[in-house]
């Protein structure tokens, strides 16, 4: 009986997250916490970008706050955010029923598909900086793009085997759709059960949007940003240089070699690039060059990660 009432009240922002987490946990996904380094998309979290490499099966799901400085609008645009939230599901290898599972997840968050128009439209994904691409769709529900569905084919310039299925839900969009609000800031994030008071997305996040946008567009110190970028890059390159001899390392050193640390340094560079870009500090000419520098880091880390995995899988040569 309670379910009838539930259906009539759309999910709050946090209920939406709970439902998706529960749905995918019940289908064998490990629920990971959001990654704690700035990323532009859930794909860049090592839980996707690195775990898709190699033969090991993976089922993992997590919400990932994603920062896109250029999309900041000082909190004044009802549809665009400096930082939005993606819910990312990674299934390697992809189950045969992956599309059906996805549709069931929509039902689970209160979307009765028989009352809506659903289309899978071609949308191939590419992250040149990561040497990564896949084919897939944008899922359109009543004209709204609610998810990205991708079959990863390559990552770090390497063919994936098995390939990986990735589903990315845009949480703010879906919540706005479910709650039928025109502004992201009007999304109900939570309701206090005792008072019935609604806490909105704007209550929680508006100051962040205002201040991050101002920082990104007006305050960020361009020479300092370049300096940070150069420092992170140099350290990452240093680690990648050492990673070249990973095969020769002893077992313990192999295990502890910080490829993951190198990846965080590469992510820092990527975020700094996005900040510089939003600040208008990168000319088109420079752009290509800086992107190539970051590609060297990201692809380098992916290769080192794969090499480390292989080296650890091999019997130690010192035995």
């Amino acid at each position: 009986m309670q379910s009838v009432a539930e259906k009539q009240t759309p999910l709050t922002f946090q209920q939406l997250l709970f439902k998706l987490q529960t749905f995918w946990a019940e289908r064998g996904c490990v629920l990971q916490q959001p990654y704690d380094v700035e990323v532009g998309a859930g794909t860049m979290s090592p839980d996707t970008f690195l775990r898709v490499l190699g033969p090991k099966p993976v089922r993992i799901a997590y919400a990932q706050p994603s920062r896109r400085p250029a999309d900041g609008r000082y909190g004044e645009n009802p549809n665009r955010l400096f930082r939005h939230t993606q819910f990312q599901v990674i299934l390697k290898p992809p189950p045969v029923r992956i599309q059906e599972m996805y549709l069931e997840s929509l039902e689970a968050i209160g979307i009765d598909l028989s009352e809506h128009d659903l289309k899978f439209e071609e949308d191939n994904w590419e992250w040149p900086v990561g040497g990564a691409w896949g084919v897939g769709w944008q899922v359109m529900l009543d004209g709204l793009e609610i998810s990205q569905f991708t079959y990863f084919q390559q990552c770090g310039g390497m063919d994936l085997d098995p390939i990986c299925g990735e589903i990315t839900y845009g949480l703010e969009r879906i919540a706005g759709f479910l709650q039928d609000v025109d502004s992201i800031y009007d999304i109900v994030w939570a309701v206090e059960p005792d008072t019935g008071r609604k806490v909105t997305y704007g209550d929680i996040r508006l100051p962040e949007e205002q201040q991050y946008s101002a920082y990104g567009f007006d305050y960020a110190d361009v020479p300092k940003l370049w300096e940070h970028l150069n420092l992170y890059e140099a350290e990452c390159l240093g680690l990648l240089e050492q990673a070249k001899s990973i095969v020769e390392m002893d077992e313990l050193k192999k295990l502890r070699f910080p490829v993951l640390g190198a990846y965080e340094l590469a992510l820092k560079c990527s975020h700094l690039f996005n900040l510089l870009d939003a600040r208008g500090a990168i000319s088109v000419t420079e752009r290509v060059g800086v992107m190539a520098r970051i590609r060297t880091l990201v692809v380098g880390v992916a290769k080192a990660y794969a090499a480390q995995g292989e080296a650890l899988a091999m019997p130690s040569r010192e035995v």
């Binding site: 009352e115 809506h116 128009d117 529900l141 009543d142 004209g143 759709f177």
Partner: peptide, 10 residues
């Protein structure tokens, strides 16, 4: 419902 949704996106 569908009309409402499409109009909202537009």
């Amino acid at each position: 419902t569908i009309q409402h949704g499409n109009a909202r996106v537009l």
